[in-house]
Design a protein around this nucleic acid. Structure first.
Lengths: 352, 352
DNA sequence: GTGAAAGCGCTAACAA
DNA sequence: TTGTTAGCGCTTTCAC
């Protein structure tokens, strides 16, 4: 059905090796032969079989990506970014989702590795990245994105989570908010913990106690439920600071359900930055993560590793950006201080 | 670095063929040998090389997916659904984005096919699916999802677009709206045209002229721009009917920008159904596409084809569902008719 | 039920 | 520069 290298060789009157060289560019081939091979290939609709090529050459042209959830736009945007970086290097991407379950993570990772990919991009479903041993055994380079394991020795790309937390807290405190509820997905994840640390640091700097903190889970449905329960008995909060996109959605949904207006009654600051945040009313103040760049950086590093460069492991920390819109306003009853921060840090703010 | 089948064979004191049979289950192996092989494999961290296996057996365990945009949640949700269906059959998925460009589509498709996948799931970037010849030449089964080419002979999975259009129009007209603006991405796509046909049919049934129609492109940014321009001179519309998720976002953004309130000043009905539509204020009335099921159906059909079943080509048309929320309200100044439709069609409505 | 051997499509080492 | 040959890791005859 599909033509093989031999078919092309026969048709062009050359050896298989020559055909290989024409397509791989590994050796120079005489111009007229190149032409004949190309012509024969075109007529037969021939394209080298990558699986066979990779088997023989020992060089993979496929990269594996493991994410916790393919329905979360943060992760798929990351994949989009990586895919578009990869293609420039003639690579393809094979993906799998762990569904936020360590057991599935292990199974799926094993399946991915069975393709002998050139490298792996992983977003572990838990801090431990318990399946890491599989990758180590496979001996391929990998980079962990977004969620970096504790005491991790390897390449990683994250955002500066503590700083992101600080920016968010600074902004709200600067608006006069004192009763702030921090809405986390789960404190089991290091990035979330780090964001909280940043927030608490600002609180301490301002001589305030620790903010209220609630955990609402990893998807929209459970987040909405838990927040609805929480708001039942809650009356003091003047601002909600959500640490993930689903947490942000949960906050909005349950505030609306209880008839509390944003930002008149309560301010909302969200995480991640999607189109809908700009489109809705009121447009959402949010911490934007540089997803596009995270993907690019991850691939850059992997490229070096694949090329065999012996650079030391690094954890790249990219900066988030506070997008000030209108879902945050001065706290009711508390005259606004005119600057967002009194602790000497400036939150780079820009309207989207 | 990585153990091969020979290493395992040697360690277990059997032949390579036996090891192969243990893992593939193709032939029965004596229980004690199975145990020895499993043990050896475990110690060596052995897993069969899928690329090699596929090369020799001629049976692929990888499926290719080609989508127009990995940043569009509609497409990535589809991939999520397909991925979770595939894994049950021991398949993996390799993805590529055409970025809505026919030339890229061709290149990316060729790259995907070079892995000799068992099947292809394609969302073409244009009605023609000009690169279809590549798939035909490759001789693998494929199914077209969401965007079905004109005069397509092959398997396809879509939603019932005309009916979706009718449901949407029925709902708005039932609320007394007469000046409705239909916001399409581009009329070059068949699914969009079909939605419009459904809408126009309802208009005709009601003795109304054709609704205003504008094309706003395929992404949020251009949609917002074009809608902002459009609204500049627009004063009569009492409702906007958006035919894609980015169009929906564009409508919301530009309405808000011009200070028009939803639903007091103008009603908005959107397409697709994402978490944010439920979370925002007001929650959005929208046509929900059964993404999850579309993915499942697509894979079901491919599975049959891979198994060699000779069933006739089919176009599966799944039903959308109108999720009535609060972004649509009776038209101002026009007393509401008490039923959504006077044409005998009933729009299945349910609050989300 | 098992082992030996051939070969899937390709590339790399070696001769010519 | 080109052809020939061997072999990547696996599955599948074919003998036993």
């Amino acid at each position: 059905m599909t033509a093989s290298i031999k078919d092309v060789a026969k048709k062009a009157g050359v050896s298989a090796g020559t055909v290989s060289n024409v397509f791989s560019g590994n050796r120079v081939v005489r111009a007229d032969l190149v032409e004949r091979v190309r012509e024969a290939a075109r007529e037969l609709g021939y394209q080298p079989d990558r699986a066979a090529s990779q088997l023989r050459a020992g060089k993979a042209r496929i990269v594996a990506a493991l994410v916790p959830d393919l329905n979360n736009p943060f992760f798929t945007s990351l994949i989009a970014s990586i895919e578009s970086s990869l293609r420039a290097d003639g690579m393809d991407i094979i993906v799998a989702s762990s569904n936020d379950d360590p057991a599935e993570e292990r199974t799926r990772l094993a399946a991915l590795l069975a393709w002998r990919p050139a490298a792996l991009i992983a977003i572990p479903c838990a801090d431990e990245f318990a399946s890491r041993d599989l990758v180590d055994k496979a001996g391929i380079p990998y980079v962990v994105v977004d969620r970096v394991p504790h005491l991790f020795e390897g390449d990683a790309v994250t955002v500066d989570n503590p700083e992101a937390g600080r920016m968010a807290a600074d902004h709200l405190i600067g608006l006069g908010h004192r009763n702030i509820v921090v809405v986390a997905s789960t404190m089991k994840l290091r990035n979330i913990r780090e964001r909280c640390e940043g927030i608490e640091q600002v609180f301490t700097d301002h001589g305030l106690g620790r903010p209220t903190l609630i955990e609402v889970g990893l998807d929209f449905e459970t987040a909405s439920e838990r927040l609805a329960d929480f708001m039942e008995g809650e009356r003091q909060a003047t601002a909600f600071l959500a640490l993930t996109n689903f947490a942000t959605l949960g906050v909005l949904a349950s505030l609306h359900q209880r008839g509390r207006r944003v930002p008149e009654d309560v301010s909302v600051l969200g995480f991640d930055d999607y189109s809908w945040m700009r489109a809705v009313n009121p447009p959402l103040t949010a911490i934007r993560q540089p997803v596009e760049e995270m993907g690019r950086m991850a691939w850059l590093r992997l490229r070096e590793r694949i090329a065999g460069e012996d650079v030391p492991f690094s954890r790249m920390r990219l900066n988030c950006k506070l997008m000030v819109r209108t879902s945050t306003a001065p706290a009711v009853g508390s005259p606004q201080t005119d600057r967002p921060s009194s602790a000497g840090r400036s939150a780079p703010a820009k309207t989207g």
